[in-house]
Design a protein around this nucleic acid. Structure first.
Length: 414
DNA sequence: TCTGGGGTCCTAGGACCC
DNA sequence: TCTGGGGTCCTAGGACCC
């Protein structure tokens, strides 16, 4: 038995915790570069703002009524950890599924609805974020119950009779049914979750594969997924960004890639992993009609896995040089670390000894940055915290304070 | 007429999630 | 003018093995 606890309009709700003047107002939070709406308060939804809608496509008269914020992931991540801390206090086991959702184990819990209501009110009181709770015998049913809970007053729903309770539940709201499957299912008359439950299992399996077959089983009440408390090791780490403005100079492009690569290496070491390969790509702006498009990509496998930022920076630079062509206006670049492994299963190099200085050097680097703030010590080819903002830097015109993660940005109470 | 059978690994593409 | 970022899994087909 699972409970899915989900923060309502999470990013918008977090902004409101620290800026009470936003309560009751239409609030949207934008993606990086202030591009699209990625979170909307109820009031903003009521104005017709769609998920993922580009800001520039919102009519000016609607736009004027909105309170807009740039994405502040440092703040959302910290507030998410607070929610999880409350859940771990209340439930026997918790799986953090995403920044705003956790599955909680209800095995052995007597009064499930009471516990769910208690979790909800404690999170609201201690963290300040409104949540809903969905309960079901499978994760997929808990997800569906959570969706139903969003439109109830007390914010808690348990699914006990899927066929009845999901009679009018749109099939594309089912976890695991995306836009492609929904269109195909709709074409054969499967429009609701109840329709999907009743569909012939063999036919479904043949036409849509094992993933959707499992979804159907879960909707029927047969668990196919367990609670996964321990996070599995990453298979890849990707850092990519669209640029605030288009880039034409090779050095600007190289600097952006170096900055992303250095960040990716920090994430790599923070998870005690090492990279067996590197992938770098560049993109022009696909939305610019008529502009020449170019999206090159290079990848390489290393003879020996590494955690050395210097090595990665060198290879990444060579890749940028081999891909860069004059005359294109670059809009985005990315770096991926591939074939990740734990340090304990290192494959040695038959011909070259390992450089024993790398690990201590990187540790010192990471320690300094933990203590003095990210970017306190870095590499000349990447951007630095004190240097000028790069030409390609992200646009964040409405960024709120890092209220909970930076001493110099704490909330002031007069 | 008649072209083996069984297996692994890799990659690209497609689907999904938040 | 302006359009996000970071992940996973499955499947089909090709290359290659004995």
């Amino acid at each position: 038995m699972f409970a899915l606890v989900d923060g309502n309009n999470f990013y918008a709700s977090v902004e409101r915790v620290w800026q009470p003047e936003l309560r009751g107002k239409p609030v949207i939070v934008l993606s990086n570069n202030d591009g699209c709406a990625i979170a909307r308060s109820q009031e903003a939804k009521a104005l017709g703002i769609k998920m993922g809608q580009p800001l520039h496509q919102i009519p000016p008269e609607v736009r004027r009524q909105l309170h807009v914020r740039s994405a502040n992931f440092a703040l959302y991540g910290d507030m998410s950890a607070r929610v999880v801390a409350v859940l771990r206090d209340l439930f026997p086991a918790v799986e953090v599924y995403s920044i705003d959702e956790s599955f909680c184990d209800l095995a052995g819990v007597g009064d499930r609805l009471a516990l769910a209501a208690h979790a909800r009110s404690r999170i609201l009181q201690w963290v300040g974020v409104p949540c809903c709770v969905g309960i079901g015998v499978t994760k997929t049913l808990a997800k569906a119950a959570n969706k139903l809970a969003k439109s109830t007053v007390d914010g808690v729903v348990e699914i006990v009779d899927p066929l009845e309770q999901l009679r009018e539940f749109p099939v594309d709201d089912v976890w695991g049914v995306g836009p492609r499957f929904a269109a195909r299912l709709g074409a054969e008359g499967i429009l609701t979750a109840a329709d999907l439950i009743r569909a012939d299992a063999e036919t479904l399996r043949a036409r849509y594969g094992v993933v959707l077959a499992r979804t159907q089983l879960e909707l029927r009440g047969t668990p196919c997924m367990e609670l996964e408390e321990a996070e599995a090791d990453r298979q890849q780490i990707v850092v990519s960004r669209s640029f605030g403005s288009e880039v034409t100079a090779r050095e600007d492009l190289a600097q952006s890639v170096a900055t992303f690569a250095a960040r990716a290496c920090e994430k790599l070491r923070a998870r005690s992993l090492q990279a067996g390969g590197l992938w770098v790509w560049l993109n022009t702006n696909p939305f610019r009609e008529g502009a020449a498009q170019y999206h090159p990509s290079r990848s390489i496998a290393f003879p020996v896995s590494t955690t050395d930022t210097r090595q990665l920076l060198g290879v990444a630079r060579a890749m940028v040089d081999s891909m860069w062509r004059p005359g294109y206006r670059y809009k985005k670049a990315g770096v991926g670390l591939l074939d990740l492994s734990r340090g304990s299963v290192a494959q040695g190099d038959l011909f070259a000894g390992a450089d024993v200085r790398v690990t201590p050097l990187m540790e010192v680097l990471d320690q300094a940055n933990r203590r003095f703030g990210r970017g306190a010590v870095g590499f000349a080819s990447a951007t630095s915290r004190r240097g000028p903002a790069p030409a390609w830097g992200m646009k964040q015109s409405s960024l709120s304070q890092a209220f909970t993660t930076r001493w110099d940005q704490l909330l002031r109470v007069k």
